[in-house]
Amino acid sequence: MNGNDDPTRNALWNPVFLADLRRDLLRFAELQLRDQSAAEDTVQEALTAAFSGQDRFTGRAALKTWVFAILKNKIVDTLRHRQRTAPITSLIPDDEEEGDDFAVLFNPGHHWNPADRPQAWGDPETTFAQQQFWVVFETCLTRLPENTARVFMMREFLGLETLDICLELALTTNHCHVILHRARMGLRLCLEQRWFTPENPTC
């Protein structure tokens, strides 16, 4: 630390910034690990690593992105470790009946019921700009079954390739695709109902 001449460089030393950042990191880690103490440990490791390399960024947004990149690597490590000690496969129900939970959306000919037909969601950027949307997004992720959510987040948040996830979790490729399909079906349905329906006053 060398004084306050460069507020960017010292952003991690700013207690308010650090508290906010830590809160965001924790929420992100908890969403994926669904275990508070594991999330706290992982965030602690990420912050420790961030403190030891904090000269490499410019600007707070870049700092936040960088710390999140570190956190994502730590979450991958934690998930790998967990997979070795308590494999996810033992937790996944065996019913492979695909789309099972969502069959009600379709008629007997397997086409959309008129009331359940997906709607146009408009310009994504308009939605992303609304802070409240991200609260709903998190809520919808939380409502997915735990393992479904985990596989989805490994794919979409941690950016792992589907084949690697299958290998990692010892799942067949088909099972992986079934789980990801369920996750996306659940997430889109939740967002459509909670965010995009006309009753939603913010739309």
């Binding site: 992105t65 979409e156 948040f157």
Partner: peptide
């Protein structure tokens, strides 16, 4: 897109 956006750094 939402997942990418969220995971780069959750907007708040």
């Amino acid at each position: 897109q939402a997942s990418r956006r969220y995971s780069v750094a959750p907007p708040n």
